[in-house]
Design a protein around this nucleic acid. Structure first.
Length: 280
DNA sequence: CAAAGCTCCTGACCGC
DNA sequence: TGCGGTCAGGAGCTTT
């Protein structure tokens, strides 16, 4: 499933295709994905120049010349593929789960495909972005300056829930999904079931460093794939080979000198993988 | 308020 | 081979 690094990879893939070009034709093949695609979505997009493509948390934002912003989220299984109108012999024949198609004046097609339909495609004026329900309570970007040991410590201090759940909470820090939260807690040697408010300042610093490192490494690797994610050019990424705990239930812990098997538990209805010996 | 539960959805997987 | 049942999971919304 796309987490921050994968969305960043998609952003870098589509930006050169879209920025500075004009949307000549939009096709929506259903009324809603997870939420309704606005009735006026097409009319607000067609004819507009795309000024800039931005990643905000796990959202992709397409800033248009009109001041509108296309908001796109890949959900669990969303992917974006690139092709050209010319390459499609029959341009009106699309694949299953192709929900939205963007065509530019250069003849490029950007296709949003999402089998599980947990994704989002909507539009909002840039003046309303700040107060938009998707963004108003959003926590800090994990790769930004405002995310640091003391700010994380302050956020966690009031939380009696577990660390695993707190780090998945987008009001604390954005962009962290199930995989990277598991990995970051393993790297920092913290048990996922510990209460968030019990984490000391020093451990917060270490956790922040590890989160940054793991995300940056994943971005460099071009994002992970995990079964249902393909890079924007259609080629599979490879970061999934370096998960240390995620999806490794029963396997031996990767830490030198530790032979404990990785355990899987459920927290807030989601799988958590961890080493019961290395993480305390 | 915080925290837990609910919800959207399909494909993969399992046992029969 | 086909068929039900189960599960996964992002994150906003609703309920407690």
């Amino acid at each position: 499933m796309p987490e921050l690094p994968e969305v960043e990879t998609v952003k870098r893939g589509i930006a050169p295709i879209l920025e500075g070009n004009t949307l000549t034709k939009i096709i929506t093949r259903r009324d809603k994905i997870r939420i309704a695609i606005p009735q006026d979505f097409i009319s607000r997009c067609e004819g507009q120049e795309i000024l800039q493509v931005v990643r905000k948390a796990k959202y992709l934002l397409l800033y248009l010349g009109s001041g509108d912003v296309i908001i796109c989220h890949l959900g669990m299984s969303g992917r974006i593929s690139l092709t050209s109108a010319k390459a499609r012999k029959e341009p009106d024949i699309y694949e299953k789960h192709d929900h939205v198609i963007f065509e530019t004046d250069k003849g490029d097609l950007v296709i949003y495909n999402d089998p599980r339909r947990f994704g989002i495609m909507t539009i909002c004026h840039e003046n309303d972005l700040e107060t938009h329900r998707f963004f108003k309570d959003m926590g800090s970007e994990p790769l930004g300056n405002e995310f640091n040991g003391s700010s994380l410590y302050a956020k966690l201090k009031s939380k009696k829930t577990t660390l695993k759940t707190a780090l998945l909470d987008q009001r604390v820090v954005v962009g962290m999904g199930n995989i990277y939260v598991c990995e970051a807690l393993f790297d920092t040697g913290i048990a996922p079931e510990r209460r968030a408010c019990d984490l000391g300042q020093n451990k917060c610093e270490e956790l922040v460093r590890n989160i940054r490192e793991i995300l940056e490494r994943a971005i460099k690797a071009g994002g992970s794939t995990l079964k249902d994610y393909a890079q924007v050019d259609g080629e599979l990424g490879y970061f999934q080979h370096s998960f240390k705990v995620y999806g490794r239930e029963g396997e031996q812990c990767a830490t030198k000198g530790c032979s404990a098997p990785i355990e899987r538990i459920t927290q807030s209805g989601r799988s958590t993988f961890y080493c019961p010996r290395c993480q305390n």
